[in-house]
Design a protein around this nucleic acid. Structure first.
Length: 704
DNA sequence: ATGACCAATTGA
DNA sequence: CAATTGGTCATG
């Protein structure tokens, strides 16, 4: 979506696609029928007096069908003229039903040949869908081959009438010290210039690699303040609620009270709508939130900021599955705003923005990074290593890890990151840790019951006589110990120390600056008051055992996010990585080189024709549905069709549902827009024919 | 989705 | 030949 977006022709209501046909049909009806029709209508409803000014409203109706995803014209009764402003919610009669809709614009006349139905009701004159967001929704729908009504469900929160009656509290006058904002960014090459540019009303775009230990909420708040000082609005999106709270506090301390609002889905309907209205009314122009905030109608948008863009929480799980990064970059483009995409790690998409020159790099010189980085070491931990280490046999921890934890506990809190329980439920060789695969189809082996031998989760064959293809080993192990088990073991190894766990739905926000052990799953690490003295990354090989498109990138991101909480080497901060030191990704972690890793990863992806160099889309549905969709669709030149292949069923509903298959469509990135267009057309045709639905996903975030 | 319309198909 | 079913088209 970074390519220039042409204003969609679908935006304006067009004459009926086949006017001749429409006229012929009209003529075919007898004059008698028509006059009866009119008389019946006139009798049923008193004639509406059209508005004297702009009596036509172009309305986007809320129907889920792809071929109805275009504006329809309605007559505005004079009585509703004042309320039916662009962006207002209305009720209209559509195909014999009362449906919800948004007024996109008012017009003097309609290109529609027939009689216009009047608006039924103005639900509320509050302009909740301003033109910029309407255009954004159209662009996102087009990009993800979805419908605008689906996107609008994500973009406009449900109305709350009580809240709407209340006035929004206006932000006070801003007093911002731009010099201190520049100073906050002085560790980064080009940082102060970037901030100055923001304050001066410019639109710089940067991909920011934060140094380890960076107080990133403070820096984002300073960038926001600089933009705000120049009289413009700011939109900041972060992965989860804890990050929102941190950034909320940072904005409060930099901007003062009342200058920003928090906008997340978990605020609840009333508070969410209150925040939304404060923004849409222009009372407040700095917004921080999760992916639900990406569409917030910020006035005079000057900066969009995204933290940790690799976090899959930025991927919307509801159709059409837009990614916050793409939504924000589209906004930066369309609304001429600056953009910053930041993180400790760098995504290949971030690297691609640099490669194409769309954004420039904001990172610290090598010596600054070194100054902030902890001391990092890698220690091996295969069972053969452990067997040679008597201490490891009793504590199940390699000696180096045990020593590092003991030493770290002298100086402060110690974090142990362990892969999530069930993160990879597959089995692995207990000697070399190679994931165990089915001899017949190479699917992953799992243990489904204590009584049964290991079973392939793809083809279902049992494999009682498995041997490792790598080392010939015959022993299998369930690779995940889980955070609870790890915590118990550490408690026994360090009996006098407090052990806390943070994972799943029991996530700790912070941890005090005193000796204690914290066992956390990736992404759930509590923020230490003054840095961890030591961070241990357990079972790194396990995170790399997945077969997803982003396995390596995602693993490095999680490790860097944990390692970034460690004190600098100068303050005896130590990261111990348990894994294979020959792994290039662990070397990148050791050297703290997110850029180098992203460059290599992007090259690999380009040569393998994977995103972001290529654009992928998946079609999922029953075998028949997917096959017929493939017959119908007109793909752009050079498109590849991979599959169909059966989809691994997951979740509780899996057993009851019909078997699903999936095809992957792939085109060079330059043809991405054409692919999306083709898929929109496909969905339109299929919906119109009432075909069995096929799920279309453009740029799926995970592809196993 | 819902409904209207037309043509082809089925049943007596 | 009427009743039924299925495909196509339109929705303002």
């Amino acid at each position: 979506m970074t390519e220039p977006h042409d204003p969609s022709p679908a935006e304006t209501s067009q004459p009926a696609l086949m006017p001749e046909l429409a006229r012929a049909r009209e003529a075919a009806r007898t004059a008698k029928e028509q006059s009866q029709d009119r008389r019946a209508k006139a009798a049923a409803r008193p004639p509406v007096e059209p508005a004297t000014e702009d009596p036509v409203a172009r309305v986007l109706v809320d129907v889920p069908l792809a071929h109805l995803d275009r504006p329809f014209d309605y007559l505005v009764p004079e009585k509703m003229s004042a309320g039916a402003v662009p962006g207002a919610r209305v009720k209209v009669r559509f195909a014999g039903q009362d449906v919800d809709g948004f007024v996109l614009e008012r017009a003097v006349e309609s290109a529609h040949r027939g009689r216009l139905a009047p608006l039924r009701r103005v639900v509320s004159p509050e302009p909740v869908l301003p033109p910029a967001v309407a255009a954004l929704s159209a662009a996102v729908a087009a990009r993800y081959a979805g419908t605008r009504s689906d996107v609008l469900r994500l973009a406009v929160p449900p109305r709350h009438a009580t809240v709407e009656k209340q006035a929004s509290e206006e932000a006070p006058r801003a007093e911002v010290d731009v010099a201190s904002a520049e100073k906050a960014w002085s560790a980064y090459t080009g940082g102060p210039a970037f901030v100055r540019h923001l304050a001066e009303g410019g639109r710089p775009r940067g991909v920011w690699s934060a140094t380890p230990g960076e107080d990133w909420p403070h820096l984002l708040a300073q960038a926001a303040a600089a933009t705000y000082a120049g009289g413009r609005g700011v939109l900041l999106c972060v992965p989860d609620h804890r990050d929102v709270e941190r950034l909320d506090r940072a904005l409060g301390s930099v901007l003062g009270r009342g200058h920003h609002v928090v906008l997340t889905a978990d605020l609840g309907p009333a508070a969410r709508y209150r925040s939304f209205l404060a923004v849409s009314r222009g009372a407040v122009r700095v917004v921080v939130g999760t992916r639900a905030a990406a569409f917030a109608p910020v006035h005079d948008l000057g900066l969009v900021a995204l933290w940790d863009d690799g976090d899959d929480l930025h991927a919307e799980p509801r159709a059409p599955y837009p990614h916050t990064r793409e939504v924000l970059l589209q906004r930066a483009h369309a609304e001429a705003a600056a953009a910053v995409v930041g993180g400790f790690a760098r995504t290949v998409e971030g690297e691609y923005l640099l490669r194409t020159g769309w954004a420039h790099e904001i990172s610290a010189p090598r010596e600054v990074v070194r100054e902030h980085a902890p001391l990092s070491t890698i220690t091996g931990a295969t069972d053969t290593d452990l067997a040679r280490d008597p201490l490891a046999r009793t504590t199940r921890l390699p000696r180096a890890v045990f020593d590092a934890i003991r030493s770290g506990l002298q100086r402060g809190p110690v974090l142990v990151q362990t892969p999530r329980h069930g993160y990879a439920a597959t089995l692995a060789c207990d000697r070399c840790r190679t994931p165990a695969r089915c001899a017949t189809c190479a699917g992953p082996l799992r243990v489904t019951s204590r009584q049964r031998p290991p079973t392939c989760s793809w083809c279902g064959r049992e494999d009682p006589a498995w041997t490792c293809a790598e080392c010939g080993g015959r022993g299998l192990r369930a690779p995940v110990r889980g955070d609870q088990r790890t915590a118990e073991e550490l408690g026994r190894a360090f009996p006098s120390v407090t052990v806390r766990t943070s994972s799943g739905d029991r996530v700790l926000a912070t941890v005090p600056d005193e000796p204690s052990l914290v066992v956390a799953t990736p992404g759930a690490e509590p923020v230490p008051a003054d840095g961890y003295s030591c961070v241990v990354l357990l079972d790194t090989w396990l995170m790399l055992a997945r077969t997803d498109l982003r396995t390596t990138e995602e693993a490095l991101r999680r490790w860097m996010n944990a390692a970034a909480m460690t004190r600098a080497a100068g303050r005896d901060g130590h990261v111990v990585i348990v894994g294979d030191s020959s792994e290039p990704v662990l070397q990148a972690l050791l050297r703290w080189d997110p850029g180098g890793f992203a460059r290599r990863e992007l090259e690999d992806r380009q040569s393998a024709h994977l995103p972001p160099a290529s654009r992928l889309a998946t079609l999922t549905g029953s075998d028949e549905a997917v096959t017929s969709a493939l017959d119908t669709v007109t793909l752009p030149p050079g498109a590849e069709v991979l599959g169909p292949a059966p989809v691994e069923q997951t979740g509780p509903a899996a057993a009851s549902e019909v078997a699903q298959v999936r095809v992957v469509l792939r085109v060079p990135r330059a043809h991405g827009a054409e692919l999306s267009r083709a898929l929109v057309e496909l969905q339109g045709v299929r919906d119109a024919k009432k075909n069995e639905p096929v799920r279309v996903q453009v740029d799926p975030v995970a592809l196993g």
